[in-house]
Design a protein around this nucleic acid. Structure first.
Lengths: 226, 226
DNA sequence: GCAAAAGTGTTCCATCTACACCCATGT
DNA sequence: ACATGGGTGTAGATGGAACACTTTTGC
């Protein structure tokens, strides 16, 4: 068997909707290379753990976050992407509801923070590329799966759902058409609760009916937003 | 740094349209484990080569095929997927025009063959899972990118394009609607050549106009087949 | 002349798009 | 009373789905 000394790592791109904008979870590195740079949470896979386990473990260790939704994103393997050794990174794409988690730096990280995607710092390694790939995944996925609901709180405002779509898809959306479309899917419950955000007419709260969604899906229904 | 001894491999799922059906390229393993089983072509990544280079090299070595289209598919990393050591495999999805290549077994492979997807043998390792993932990618991709043309010969029959779509999407397609839709994209040239296949009315040959496709794409045109 | 595959149009329905005014609240 | 965000309907255009007969060849 060929001699080979390649390390295997995992990294996670964790998105969250917070303060009316789309955020990504970053850590401040505590060790060289790229000490003090911001980077995606991640680290080396341990001998006998699955890749998913490695991501979840690193996330928990470095940020104290456990994710609501996760899937594999892409693997990055350019020979010189890490200045120390050859490291290939299998990256994951995750969504969380930021209010559900108290982030906290720990092992290997001297700080953790949510960053508005519009105001990102420089990132370590090739993490900018990874984030770019994740953004594309998010854009695509949003249109054919109801993943928006994994980013919002359980009870949310329609205007937040709409804002989320506009931010991610980077385009204007017609309020009436959007609302009509989403409601026609019949996967939302309109609650008898109103919320006033200080100005304007108080808005109704909605809740995503996951069970209903899976029932409809089994019957052939396709979620699809242009 | 953590001690870690995980090997990194690449495997390729190569599809080709041949004899009016969809085929996948397999090799017969020459070494244990799974000696004499059929498997996807692939092998360990060499220290300083890129992942793409590794796939192309292994494919060339084991099958004598060079691909027309390739993209990364998914990474498989379950701890016990290889009975020898821990091996994670980064898999690739490729499309070729089978008539353009003379397949030939070589290093590590005692045989190479195209297999109709409907008549597959048992596969080594977790390759059945990999193939399943590749099939899903093919199905999705077919609907929003003109990858069908990478599977057909340069000059092809409309009926083959249609058959290809029906095979991959596993459903019937209305001939008239399909033709109308595809032609409306304005990315095919109808040639002044007819081909008779023994029975029935001779059919016109078509050619995919790649340049035209990229021009339209740049202008915002979206390829989309339901 | 018959079997086999190629080629071709129209109608109906569902969905998308564009678009503007009133409502409920806080200050 | 005004500023702010929430909530709602309609008409026209577009695209998708359903559907059957004629044409050209080989045998």
């Amino acid at each position: 068997m060929i001699r080979q000394n390649i390390k295997v790592a995992v990294d996670a791109v964790v998105f969250g909707y917070k303060d009316k904008s789309l955020n990504v979870l970053l850590i401040k590195r505590n060790i060289d290379p790229f000490k003090d740079s911001w980077a995606l949470p991640g680290g080396l896979v341990v001998e006998n753990e699955s890749l998913e386990h490695a991501v979840e473990r690193e996330l928990k260790e470095e940020t104290n976050v456990t994710v609501d939704y996760m899937e594999q994103l892409y693997s990055f393997g350019t020979p010189d992407r890490d200045p120390r050794n050859r490291v290939i990174s299998i990256t994951y794409f995750a969504l969380v509801k930021p209010e559900h988690h108290k982030i906290k730096a720990d092992t290997d990280a001297k700080d953790v923070a949510w960053f508005d995607l519009q105001k990102l710092p420089e990132l370590a390694f090739d993490h900018k590329m990874i984030l770019q790939k994740a953004k594309e995944r998010l854009q695509n996925k949003l249109t054919y799966e109801p993943i928006g609901f994994d980013l919002l709180e359980d009870k949310f405002l329609f205007s937040d759902l709409e804002r989320l779509y506009m931010i991610i898809l980077e385009k204007q959306i017609d309020r009436r058409n959007f609302r009509k479309k989403i409601l026609s899917f019949d996967i939302l419950e309109e609650l008898d609760e109103k919320v006033s955000e200080g100005r304007g007419r108080p808005a109704n709260l909605f809740r995503f009916n996951k069970k209903q969604y899976f029932t409809l899906k089994r019957e052939g229904f396709l979620f699809d937003i242009k």
